[in-house]
Design a protein around this nucleic acid. Structure first.
Lengths: 337, 337
DNA sequence: AGCCAATTTGCAATCGGTTGCAATAACTAT
DNA sequence: ATAGTTATTGCAACCGATTGCAAATTGGCT
């Protein structure tokens, strides 16, 4: 049905090797030959089968895009960016949904069956064991949105969560909140721990400020809402740093239900800056995670690994930035003289 | 590096065919042989290379998942469902992002290079030319969320948009709104046209009700917001059927800005029922598109096509259902006797 | 034990390409 | 012209699997 290299060779009256070479750039072919082959090829509508060639070249141009975050809207943006960036490099993403997968071995087998050239793990919650398993299987890996440490076992690109926690605390303090709270995601997640750590570190410099902490079940609207309902039924803080934007919006909904006003009665700052956070009826003040840069950088690393497989793991850390919107009261204006 | 069939054969002291057969079920192998091969294979950590076998079998188990909707949160849910459903069938999604792609030929070439077994187009806005191009290239296609017609050119599964428009109009009328509006997505989209058609059909049965119509630039929050701002600055209707949930939420934000109350001053009904629509601080009344069923059905069709490539194109239409929340006033209770 | 049929196994060709090597063609310089 | 290079081309083996066919094994039955 579909034309093969052999068909082209016959039609052009040349050897199969010639055709193959005409399609690989940098190969030894005369201009005349290339023209001739291209003519035959286009008449037949031929384009070489990447998978067949992968057998000899060892390159499939397939990149496993593995994630388990299919409920956080920011990941739609992430997938959009990743797929486009990969396509621009002539690579194709093989999407792997690891929701409820616990055994890295399964995923490794799966990806090896398709002999992907590399894997990018795009997840903030997938255990590092997955990344390591891929690496041990000899597959280049980069973990985007992973936990950055000073001695990474695989390439990691993301933000410094400790720093983000610190930034959140600073923002709250600068706006004059006296009792602040940390409402994190699941307590077991290292990202949660790191953010808490930074948050508390900063607060330690301001002993007059009271801090509290709590954790939502999951990174979801409902969990954020319930956690905030719980907090509101007890003595609550004046402002909260929430685990992420989704959690924040859940918290906001609980606050609105109580007829409390934001940011006057309670302030909220989120993390991620997903598109929805900017919607006017949400208008969430949040810490922006530079996803575009993280994606670009991840792709850079993965392509670098393709060229140079022995490259040592590296951590790339991006700074976060606070995005002022309406859920935190404004910075006090410095008094005029 | 990675063990091949040959390695296993040598270690087990059998022929390569024997190993191959041990891994394909239904093949002629004795239990003893299979045991022996499996032992060697597991010692070596071998698993067969799907891509290599695809050369002879003609099956890659790769399904192109093509879409251009990377900004509508409902598609994250769609991708989640599709990837899981495909995985359950032993198939792998090759994600193709067709944002800003206009030439079907490119996509066809791309997918042929990877010799995908089939393609599922998951998009409500991709022109039918793409689906047809894949079909003409001999690749099984199903267009999920496509336009269903009585004489489909490729398999289509989705909702009946005319029906949805009718349902929206009925809901509005049943709730006693006298002046209703259709605030559609881009006017050129056939889905928009169909929904409008159904909407007007129903209204034609109620001549006492006044209807107006307008269209947003795109299916986006901002477009919905701007369109509604525009409408509000003129004489506006009492209730609107918006093109989709995102547009609806944009419209809601414009309404809130004007300090008008929903649903007392203005009612809104959306379409899709994405997760966010149910968030308490959005609480959007909407028409639910049964995405789970659409996905399941699409997968069913694509696997059916793999078994029986000549199968005639079929349209599968799912009924929509209205999800009562807070942006439309309640149905009048029938008066007690 | 002997014969025939049914299973099981291995050989070798094949899928659609790539690539090292040797043969040929095209230049270059004398 | 001619020898010496250099650039092109084709042959044939190979990548990692599958599969038709024939050979070998097994088993059943007399």
């Amino acid at each position: 049905m579909v034309p093969t290299l052999k068909d082209v060779a016959e039609r052009a009256g040349v050897s199969r090797s010639a055709v193959s070479r005409a399609f690989t750039d940098g190969a030894s072919v005369s201009a005349k030959m290339r023209k001739r082959v291209e003519k035959a090829a286009s008449e037949l509508g031929f384009s070489p089968n990447v998978l067949a060639s992968s057998l000899t070249t060892g390159r499939t141009k397939l990149i496993g895009l593995v994630s388990n975050n299919f409920h956080n809207p920011i990941f739609l943006e992430v997938f959009d960016l990743f797929t486009r960036a990969l396509q621009d490099q002539g690579l194709r993403p093989l999407l792997v949904n690891l929701t409820d997968e616990t055994d890295p071995a399964n995923s490794v087998r799966m990806l090896r069956q398709y002999s992907v050239d590399g894997v990018v793990v795009a997840s903030s919650t997938l255990p590092p064991a997955f990344g390591k398993a891929f690496r041990d299987a000899g597959v280049p890996v980069v973990h985007a949105f992973g936990r950055v440490t000073s001695a990474p076992e695989v390439h990691v690109v993301g933000i410094d969560n400790i720093d983000a926690g610190r930034l959140a605390a600073q923002s709250l303090i600068a706006r004059g909140y006296q009792r602040v709270g940390f409402m994190g995601g699941p307590e077991v997640a290292t990202s949660t721990q790191d953010r808490l750590k930074g948050f508390l570190q900063e607060l330690a410099l301001h002993p007059q400020i009271r801090a509290s902490q709590s954790f939502a079940r999951t990174y979801s609207f409902e969990a954020g809402r319930e956690e905030m309902q719980d907090l509101l039924s007890r003595a609550h803080a004046e402002a909260y740093f929430c685990g992420d934007d989704v959690l924040s919006i859940g918290a906001l909904s609980a606050i609105q239900d109580r007829r409390l006003s934001v940011p006057d009665d309670i302030g909220i700052i989120g993390l991620n800056d997903m598109e929805i956070a900017g919607w006017h009826n949400i208008n969430l003040t949040t810490i922006r995670q530079p996803i575009k840069e993280i994606v670009t950088s991840s792709i850079e690393l993965i392509t670098a690994m393709l060229r140079e497989p022995a490259r040592l793991p590296e951590a790339r850390i991006f700074a976060c930035q606070i995005v002022e919107r309406g859920t935190l009261r404004p910075l006090p204006t410095t008094a005029a003289p």
